[in-house]
């Protein structure tokens, strides 16, 4: 192989479970490192993403910062993969979608007993929450999806090696799981 592919990963409104599952490829991580180079990823703590071949994103979109990060990935990555239930459907964080955001904030910061002089945090440093949690495909174009909560290390390995080898990724029976 002439040139290593650049891969970036991030977790938005997710639990890092998909990243943990990614680490479950175990010693194959070393093989992977022969084939790819990591750009922005929790693995190396690079803060911003540069031009990449593959972007892997876990978690849905729950606040303004998620939108910015997602857009940074879309701008820089040729291929974007949504990984896991939250990225694909909103998942667990989207359970809040049937609640009104204002009443959530009111209850958590203002009316909950035991809060002294509570106020809703309004520091400009903090990203504002969206009124609903959205799957990635509603905010940017997504090229591939790896379902599962989380998908297994084997599924991630198969998907990435297919992609790196230039094959259309095909998980097939046994590897494709929705739970």
């Amino acid at each position: 192989m002439s040139k290593k592919l650049r891969v970036a990963t991030t977790s938005l409104a997710g639990c890092f479970g998909c990243h943990m599952s990614f680490l479950d490829i175990d010693e194959r991580l070393l093989t992977l490192l022969d084939l790819v180079e990591f750009d922005r990823s929790p693995i190396n703590d690079i803060k911003h993403c540069g031009p990449c071949d593959i972007g892997i994103i876990e978690g849905g979109v729950c606040n303004a910062e998620n939108v910015h990060v997602l857009r940074e990935f879309r701008k820089n990555c040729k291929i974007i993969i949504a990984i896991g239930a939250c990225a694909i459907n909103g998942g667990l964080p989207a359970q809040r979608n049937h609640l009104d955001l204002a009443s959530c904030l009111t209850e958590v910061y203002l009316t909950e007993p035991g809060l002294a002089h509570g106020h809703i945090p309004n520091d400009p440093e903090l990203p504002l929450p969206l009124d609903k949690v959205h799957p990635l495909y509603e905010v940017v174009k997504i090229d591939y999806y790896i379902p599962g909560c989380p998908p297994s290390g084997d599924a991630i390995w198969k998907f990435l090696t297919d992609l790196i080898a230039g094959r259309t990724p095909e998980l097939g029976h046994g590897l494709i799981k929705y739970d």
Binding site: A102, L105, L128, L130, K132
Partner: peptide, 25 residues
């Protein structure tokens, strides 16, 4: 490509609750 919903509009509720209107909001 376009997002499926009004991104800025979906921050309106949070803006109202925090009283923020800075660029980051």
């Amino acid at each position: 490509f376009k997002p499926a919903f009004d991104l800025d509009g979906s921050l309106a509720r949070a803006r109202q609750m925090t009283g923020r209107d800075d660029a980051g909001a």
